[in-house]
């Protein structure tokens, strides 16, 4: 079952910000990465899904229901962590979490305690006095306390130290095992790489790519680095799928996408001193999408 369906979602503001004709689906039980640089339209998309802003055209459906029409109903099962965490300043952490829980018709006291312990969050502090990282923790607990079926995270890790980030990811994996679907927006690719099943890459409001993480990492691209004994003829690797060709200091490097036999046949014709074949990290792939689109 599709938990999130975006159909030609378009949101234009007066200026250049916004999203254009965005369509993708997130299936139940997925951890879905939503990546793009700052200002690409990630938050705009999320805010449209939450009904904070209205689409110019197209639609967003969650749990099969329209986001605008059935907003309050679907939001019962959504946990949301905004990118910037601002909460009523003169409240204590405990008060805020209870206030947050009071919107859901279930008892969340146990969950609040357990989550706060897990994230080492002091419930008695005033929110005003908290550091950025601790505010983020309040946001995390606030987003998870009602055991939502869909968790939407907008740049969730900024401000968290590595240990807490680790713990937060474990928490997310547990929620996912429990059955929750997770939409994880980020511009930090390594974290998406570790958690997500699929990713959508968005740039300047448009969907650049939508791929399975496994395919993106394993099947699609390889980074080749060769150290030939002699010169490599300029046209030796002029086949489709080779990109970012570089030749310097007697080394040749490039990205390759396609049939692996094709490329090994070419390499076999060379007299090599050394050779490396690497999985490119997502960053590289991402930059690749970037450059292509520019």
């Amino acid at each position: 079952m599709a938990v999130i369906e975006l159909n030609g979602l378009t949101k234009t503001y007066g200026g250049a910000r916004g999203v254009t004709d965005l369509s993708f689906t997130v299936e139940e039980g997925e951890i879905f990465g939503f990546i793009g640089p700052n200002g690409a339209g990630k938050s705009t998309t999320i805010r449209t899904m939450l009904g904070l802003i209205y689409p110019t055209s197209g639609s967003a459906r969650i749990f099969g229901k329209d986001c605008i029409e059935h907003g309050p109903e679907i939001k019962k099962e959504i946990g949301y962590l905004p990118s910037e965490v601002f909460y009523y300043d003169n409240m204590r952490v405990k008060d805020l979490l209870n206030y947050s829980a009071s919107f859901y018709k279930k008892d969340c006291a146990g969950r609040i305690k357990a989550l706060a312990e897990r994230m080492e969050l002091d419930l008695t502090k005033k929110i005003d006095d908290l550091s950025l990282g601790n505010k983020k923790k309040v946001g995390i607990v606030q987003g998870l306390l009602h055991s939502p079926k869909l968790i939407i995270l907008d740049e969730p890790t900024s401000g968290l130290d590595p240990l807490m980030q680790q713990r937060f990811f474990e928490l997310l994996e547990e929620e996912n095992k429990r059955g929750a679907t997770i939409l994880f927006s980020s511009h930090i690719l390594s974290e998406v790489q570790r958690l997500c099943n699929r990713v959508a890459i968005i740039k300047e409001g448009r969907l650049m790519a939508l791929e399975k993480m496994s395919e993106l990492k394993e099947n699609t691209y390889k980074r080749f680095k060769l150290q030939p004994a002699g010169q490599v003829a300029p046209g030796a690797f002029a086949i489709p799928g080779v990109t970012e060709w570089k030749q310097e200091d007697g080394e040749v490097s490039f990205l390759y996408k396609g049939n692996i036999n094709e490329i090994t046949r070419r390499i076999a014709e060379l007299d090599l001193r050394n050779m490396w074949v690497e999985e490119p990290d997502l960053e590289e792939i991402f930059m690749h999408y970037y450059v292509k689109g520019a």
Partner: peptide, 17 residues
């Protein structure tokens, strides 16, 4: 103004309420 609407309207309440 205090940017709490993003918190509040992500809760299951309609704007009318």
């Amino acid at each position: 103004r205090d940017k709490t609407s993003e918190f509040l309207l992500a809760k299951p309440i309609s704007r009318d309420r």
